[in-house]
Design a protein around this nucleic acid. Sequence first.
DNA 1: GAGTTTGAAACT
DNA 2: CAGTTTCAAACTC
Length: 753
Amino acid sequence: MMGDEKDQEKERGVVMDTPERTQIANPLSKFEDSPVFNYINSLSPIKPVKSVHFTQTFSSLSFASLPSVFTSPHVSSLKDSRFLRRHQFSDPSKPELTSEEAKKAEISGEIVNTAQNPLKQQKDFDTGNSVSETCILQSDGCSNLESRKLSYEAVSPDTMNRLKLDDPSASAVPFINNGSSNCSLRMETGIEGIDPLHHNKEVSGCDWDSLISDASELLNFDSPSDTVPYKGPGQNTLDPTTFPTSLTNAKPEASDDNPSEKHEGLKNAADNHATLASTSLNNFEAGETADDTDNEVGSNLYRGMRRRCLVFEMMGSRRKHLEEVSSGSSLNVSEPNENVLPSDNRLLPMRTSNDSSRCILPGIGLHLNALASTLVDHKVVKHESSGSGRQLTIGPPSAYRSLASGQESITDVPSLENDIGPAQNGVSVSEDASKALGFVVNEELSQTSPRKKRRRVEHAGETEACKRCNCKKSKCLKLYCECFAAGVYCVEPCSCQECFNKPIHEDTVLATRKQIESRNPLAFAPKVIKTSDSMQEDESSNTPASARHKRGCNCKKSGCLKKYCECYQGGVGCSINCRCEGCKNTFGRKDGSEMDLEVNVVDDCEGSVTDGSLQKMAMHNEAEPVSATPATPSRFGRQSIPLPISSKGKPPRSFLTIGSSSSQRFGKLNPFKGGGKPDKQLQTVGEDEIPDILDENGGSPISGVKSCSPNSKRVSPPHSSMGMGLSPAPGQRSSRKLILQSIPSFPCLTPKH
DNA sequence: GAGTTTGAAACT
DNA sequence: CAGTTTCAAACTC
């Protein structure tokens, strides 16, 4: 059955791919011609390719990923797929973190390497080759480790030989590239071939991670390799989309479905991206079905995927990886975490997101979709995480959010360093995008390693952060369940009772999901959406990135200063949509519409001092809007309240938030900034990177709100953002915008069956 | 770790 | 849409 289906798919893919490929190739050629490309080439042979891919990828990715998050139908489909994958790859019964997983991760890495190798070989041939590579990478899930391994191997002649010898496909690759006909075929072949390779590697033993971490050089080397996969601009973009599609395809039931989906995806995706995604999916599936080893690989990927709620987050994370890779070893360092993470990735949101949202993610998840911070450091971190990010995105989120992603995954780890935390998912994505657009690579490179190191450390700890539910009555089939809400299956760490949120009950999960989505299409969308303008995002710039909670909170007693408040938990300020009473949200008060932000600032100050009467105070303050103006400065001055994203036990789930830093919005101070920590947290939010998904308003200054700070913005409802594409701004920011746009695109791709 | 508080989710 | 109940996370002790 599988074989036949695959063949059919391949054929289809070929047909479909051909046109797309041609398209892709063209873009590549264009890039080559571009001065940027030349510059990159001058830097290093390998890097240039990557950089090019990145940029391309980003744009495409951004488009595809984001939409999915927002659109309920797509999202649901994606989510479904996610669940499915989890089933296949990870059995709830099995411990994810076990040594086996680590092996798998290694294997996946090997796979990637194998894929890359062929790619490298083929690089000369065509851009089309890069496409296949990109597909592989995506499928891998992208643990940084994997990427590292891959790159490393790629360097070695042995790996090359293996690929060629082991996989007939490898030899075929060039042909494929030329033909452009079957990306999916390539991928499959590559994967299969990879398996043997993987075995070899596994046998040999793989402490690649350690090695990598130790040898920065290797890392660097790897990074380029990573970039290679991304090379295809269209391809890159495709990746994110591919994941979702892959997920859908991933459904255990049918590899068959994949082909159809692929076709659809291609059609939908105006770009090659779709094709790429489909190919990646095929690869995954093929790998799974084909061999146990393949399955393992897939499982690894899934792991990443599991927690990742948001596809787009994953995309972003990938981008980050690429960027990170390009930037240097530091990123790689963070990757080691990935090794750990793979299972835990989910811990993230979803790191998710990064690039989430999920992120992610990041999460998506969406909610995943919580995510990253604004600061440059954060960006760096994100990148690093992205390294993990890929993994995250693909897999880690959950454990989130990542971030990521996963979601959670990815993500999650808000803990420490704010940067990474939840924001990663969402933010990371945005960041990636931004970087990609701006040729962030250079920037990243410029970024200081120290930050990266720090991030690495953080990541390691954070990565673990996973979503773990403790449901007793909901059977983990309601949004009460964080895992379910994040679009991931419950895993061992969960303490849930009578859990139905497992692959075994996939049908139930999907059905329930559909029901919930029918009720509320955005139910599984990231709770926090970025609204910030492109302006704010600049790290250096003080402008606040804005992110808002999807629906707003309804807090009455917590003053929006505790994690009971979803806004606060997500690291975003309250918005007009909030119905909270006595809002003291340090990230930004809701008054926006009615009151001046400044007022909020004042409140914050008070709130920090006195909690008891905070509510009343806040209320009062709200009443007095204007006076506050001056307050803004005070806020910054005063220490920020403890970050919402506490480093406490769990990382905040999701920062999957698509959007970036919330705190800044309104120009209010970020708690993060104010306090010692502040910066990091803010960063996590994703100030910079976070795409302004929702920002229709984005750039526009809030009419209603007084602008204390230049950044002041208003929150835009999620839907608004959905549709729109932000106009790309020059530079990084522009990239961000692109990402946002990409999101909307996703929805189109989703429809599978 | 148990109990309380809180607010989202679900239900009516 | 509003009010109530259910639920699980967040928080406190």
